[in-house]
Design a binder for these strands. Sequence first.
DNA 1: CAGTGGTCTAGACCACTCT
DNA 2: GAGTGGTCTAGACCACTGC
Lengths: 251, 251
Amino acid sequence: MSAAFDSLSGAGSAPTFSPLYQQIKGLITQGLQAGDWKPGDMIPSEIELAARFKVSQGTVRKAIDELAAENLLVRRQGKGTFVATHIEARTQFRFLRLTPDEGEQRYPDSRILECRRVRAPAEIARLLDLRAGDSTVLIRRLLSHSGTPFVLDEIWLPGAIFRGITSERLAESKVPLYSLFESEFGTKMVRADEQIRAVLADATVAEVLKIPVRSPLLSVDRVTYTYGDKPVEVRKGLYSTRDHYYKNELS
Amino acid sequence: MSAAFDSLSGAGSAPTFSPLYQQIKGLITQGLQAGDWKPGDMIPSEIELAARFKVSQGTVRKAIDELAAENLLVRRQGKGTFVATHIEARTQFRFLRLTPDEGEQRYPDSRILECRRVRAPAEIARLLDLRAGDSTVLIRRLLSHSGTPFVLDEIWLPGAIFRGITSERLAESKVPLYSLFESEFGTKMVRADEQIRAVLADATVAEVLKIPVRSPLLSVDRVTYTYGDKPVEVRKGLYSTRDHYYKNELS
DNA sequence: CAGTGGTCTAGACCACTCT
DNA sequence: GAGTGGTCTAGACCACTGC
């Protein structure tokens, strides 16, 4: 029935077919990757996409349902379907898991300690899929709640994507870094993998976080990915859990 | 159209309607709670459920889709739809997040240090929705990989549900605790909330885990829920992250 | 009011599993 | 082959949004 997709199989190999809605899903994801629609934009309506792809509305619907479940799109009844953005509170706390022991989860104050371009060390290069020595941006940053610091972050970004990033531009912004990355540098962070360990604060860290030397800290190593599972950020965080805890829901 | 559900609204209040598939979802969940179908069992086919509830197959399908997404059910093409169980490898690692620095994630050896009935301390009672002083079971347990211990757990269970649990019964079993709980005590753990902090090992803990005193450890406080969001387990774990890390995927 | 997503139906056909 | 879930269609109607 209807349009022939799946026309993209390798030369000699037997073509592999996939369900129509999966192919539609792929086409929409390509549109997101290519920047056809930017974060916050409305994508075409289900009816229009159905016409464009020559499939039924139900098929488009299933594709969009899955993309919404993966947090790439957000449906709003009566309005349309929109590209997810980090400005929404919901998305912010998907990535910021520290919660105060007392009171609500709220957005912390950020102080940029440093922002400079450096050649990628081997480990960072490997994680970011670059070559050792390629240009990267290193940001060091301190998060605090009402004057009390609780997170020290070291953030590595590919230099090629984040041109013109400076300490000043970062400092001026009151929005989360991920919002800035998507609005100013066109890079939408989609998902992340974290490796969490317990470590001790050395003298330098202890001073910055205003805690005793050898205090226990969470060490959180994060690799963040954009569309197409492309790694675009390495973040090494040290979290003080004296007044906060890392919240996780297993389901 | 068709059967009138939603007949369960409070006396004076205006009845609130919900989509049919949500109601079907509720009915299936009730069946799971009531034990109509046990973990591993096949539930009735979509066609039969549709007939039973007097709705279309598509509506049942949407209900089941959501329950499968919540990991309560597992679909198997050509076979049927089954109640999820902790015996499957997939489900096991949903709750065991520690991964070795080197090598694959694998299931650890377990040693029961202690298993006895105690009156619930106030904190545990609150978390388990019991009264302080109610009967609970306290299990202390050590996990290790090839002789090296890396997790010390303290597990609290409601005494009323876990009658006849003993150190011996636990020790004999080679399956994960959650498998045992569901097969022997009819309690299926469905989801959990964790609070993670960094702490230091005291002398007692250090000895058991064979690490130096004041080593950094992950402190993981977990509350586990069955069907209907009923809390049925409190687990306080201390994880050594010398050779392991806690793996988390943010999406 | 028109346009959007949300629900529900009825039916066709496919893919997989077991006997 | 019979029975299961998986895909796809076409169309109806509802609920919400904004003009």
